[in-house]
Simulated scan of single mutants.
Amino acid sequence: MAVCAENTLASFDRATRDGAVAIELDVRLSVDARLVVIHDAAVDRTAVAGRRQGVVAELTWAELQQVELGEGQRIPSLEAALGVVRTEVHVEIKDPAAALQAAELVLREDLQDRVMLTSFDVGALAEVRRRSTRLRLGVICTEPTAAALAAVRQLDAAALAAGSAHLDPELTGRLQSAGVQVCGWPVRTEGELAQALAAGVDLVTADDPAWCRERLAALAGAEV
């Protein structure tokens, strides 16, 4: 989030209070096979104190807990995040090694109705689909290429998240008619928001949900 340390329990709470209808978070696997919520492959960019460096896949859960993030937050486990977030959650699989374990967690906790597993890595999503047809999947891509659209069909994916600059109403409408939810990203400026709305998307990915809701309300008012 733009207003809170990213991928933390505090940021998920803030996003919910600021009106986000869904929370997007990232998951990787520690060296001792714990599902950890972090975007980057290393802790270096987001760490502000304590342990300041290290590759997530080479650190234990205990070592990762030595990393202090902004506002005194720590790296959460996926279990903890799903335990506190009550909105829809899009779990982006950053590390393919985490795919099956994340799938098992969602199934074990019977969260498939409000948790979607997403990824740029189609192979990771295919592994999840082989595990269960009950899990909702989302394909992420910068540009909706023929390969990305084929993956949506082959995986029976529930959603496609693509760069708003590469979406248009015709493609969005075609996907929606097939029952696929379309998400535009990123939305950091009013221009990017307008671009996503012009493409007819169902959702946008924004770092500041309160700002996004405010601009949506303003744009809706301008159209009246």
Score class of each variant (00 low, 15 high):
Leu100Gln: 14
Leu167Glu: 01
Ala206Asp: 08
His90Lys: 01
Ala217Ser: 06
Ala99Lys: 08
Gly54Trp: 06
Asp13Ile: 05
Val128Gln: 13
Ala159Leu: 13
Glu109Lys: 11
Ala148Trp: 04
Ala151Glu: 00
Leu9Thr: 11
Gln101Pro: 06
Cys183Ser: 15
Asp40Gln: 12
Arg114Glu: 10
His39Asn: 12
Arg86Gly: 11
Gly72Leu: 05
His166Asn: 11
Ala10Arg: 14
Cys212Pro: 15
Arg114Trp: 12
Leu107Ser: 09
Ile93Arg: 02
Thr8Pro: 14
Leu105Asn: 13
Ser77Val: 04
Pro209Lys: 12
Gly184Asp: 06
Ile93Gln: 02
Ala206Ile: 11
Ala62His: 08
Leu203Ser: 04
Ala99Asn: 05
Gly191Tyr: 05
Asp40Pro: 11
Thr87Arg: 13
Ala126Ile: 01
Val139Thr: 00
Asp121Tyr: 00
Trp61Gln: 13
Ala102Trp: 03
Gln154His: 03
Val43Tyr: 03
Asp156Tyr: 01
Ala22Trp: 07
Glu92Thr: 00
Arg153Ala: 04
Gly50Lys: 04
Gly179Pro: 04
Asn7Gln: 11
Val182Cys: 11
Ala157Phe: 02
Val89Ile: 11
His166Leu: 04
Gly70Ile: 07
Pro144Trp: 01
Asp40Val: 10
Asp110Ile: 05
Val43Gly: 04
Gly184Tyr: 11
Ala5Pro: 10
Val27Arg: 02
Leu197Thr: 10
Ala222Met: 10
Gly54Phe: 15
Ile23Phe: 05
Ser164Met: 06
Thr118Lys: 00
Val91Met: 05
Thr118Met: 07
Gln195Phe: 06
Ala151Gly: 03
Met1Gln: 14
Ala99Leu: 07
Ile23Tyr: 00
Val21Asn: 15
Gln112Tyr: 08
Ser177Pro: 00
Asp208Trp: 11
Leu107Pro: 04
Leu203Pro: 01
Ala80Asp: 15
Arg17His: 15
Ala159Glu: 15
Ala222His: 09
Leu160Trp: 00
Leu9Pro: 13
Glu214Leu: 12
Ile38Thr: 10
Pro76Glu: 06
